[in-house]
Design a protein around this nucleic acid. Structure first.
Lengths: 193, 193
DNA sequence: ATTGTGTGTCAACAGGTGTTGGCATACGGT
DNA sequence: ACCGTATGCCAACACCTGTTGACACACAAT
């Protein structure tokens, strides 16, 4: 992600670019889009605010670069269908703890339309595509993906943003045992069953 | 909520106060805490920005007044235990559509610590108190309330904030039939069942 | 050694923010 | 009719925001 995609000669400023991106993710995750100021991000990266503008064009551009994200949903073809839910919850919890990009995106999506659209894209495209491989009726795929997203994002919102005490204190495996059946039903079950 | 609690002589400015509060809720709900400016709120209420300061002290004070909220959780003593989930989902959907205060609180909670605390209070106190009346093991009450909050807030977040298409399009009764069993299990079930 | 380009700093701009104090006016009690 | 108070508007303050342009330096190629 840091290395340039094109085989250009590596730029001397790549470390600066990376430092800006890292500081931006931290600030966006901690403060949300509007409270995270370019000046604060630049100070964290120990460079001048004008560098941010030169390398990323604008605050929106910086956020777009910092919020690049891949859910890296696991391949579920080898997983027994009855364990889809558990695998997914475990994956999301790990993904969330390991990369603050998602928290940044979650915070920003509440107030920034661009961030909301990015979030929509991630959960509508990536998650729907994964759900589609489960072999359920294609007509219900989008709905199932939406319901899964609602529980996953609700989990993240209460655990990482609002920090509801019981949701913060639940250790991952307990969380899995409670939430996995929910996803399982959204993925493969029927309503009101 | 608009009428003064104390039996003081009604103030001549009550209509103005109410107009400010209504405009504030709208703006906070639409734009979040930081993007909702006092000037914009005052313009909506057709008064001068300085009036907002005089009547509510500060922007924080205005938000605190605008985010006053009661979930009005229904009395569930007459409801068959097997229908707790359905009743709750239906209640929350109606509550959310009928009062934009919750959307304002939800948006603001992502970036404003005070709003997050308010949200924590509402869902930790009001919801936990309601769950406690269900007669399950008191040691698990807070956990069950937290899980219910995670699904309810995830529903609201995806439907009203991010506006994930499948979650926006689901009509209320379909939503109930999908989500009610989840709450039902969080309330009265066991993990990994 | 000289040029050109990439990297970085500094100072400033224009606009918007929450907030404040002063002043005019209209009301309600006497 | 008078007076104190409540209500409202206006102008301004001090600060912070994203953004821009000019200038200094370091490096690579010639």
């Amino acid at each position: 992600m840091t290395a340039p995609a094109h085989p250009t000669r590596p730029r001397r400023s790549d470390v600066t670019r990376a430092a800006i991106l890292r500081a931006a993710r931290e600030r966006f995750a901690a403060d949300g889009y509007e409270r995270a100021t370019i000046r604060a991000i630049a100070a964290d990266a120990r460079i001048d605010p004008s560098m941010v503008m030169r390398y990323y064009g604008s605050k929106e551009g910086l956020f777009a670069a910092a919020a690049e994200f891949d859910l890296r949903l696991p391949d579920l073809t080898d997983v027994p269908p009855g364990r889809f839910g558990a695998v997914l919850v475990r994956h999301f919890l790990a993904r969330w703890d390991g990369d603050e990009t998602l928290v940044a995106l979650l915070r920003a999506a509440s107030t920034n339309p661009g961030a909301a659209e990015r979030m929509r894209g991630i959960f509508a495209d990536q998650l729907t595509a994964a759900v589609a491989t489960f072999g359920t009726d294609p007509a219900t795929t989008a709905r199932r993906a939406g319901l899964v997203a609602s529980q996953i994002l609700g989990l993240a919102f209460t655990r990482y943003i609002v920090r509801l005490p019981p949701m913060v204190e639940l250790d991952p495996e307990e969380m899995v045992s409670w939430v996995a059946p929910t996803l399982q039903r959204y993925l493969t079950g029927q309503p009101d069953s």
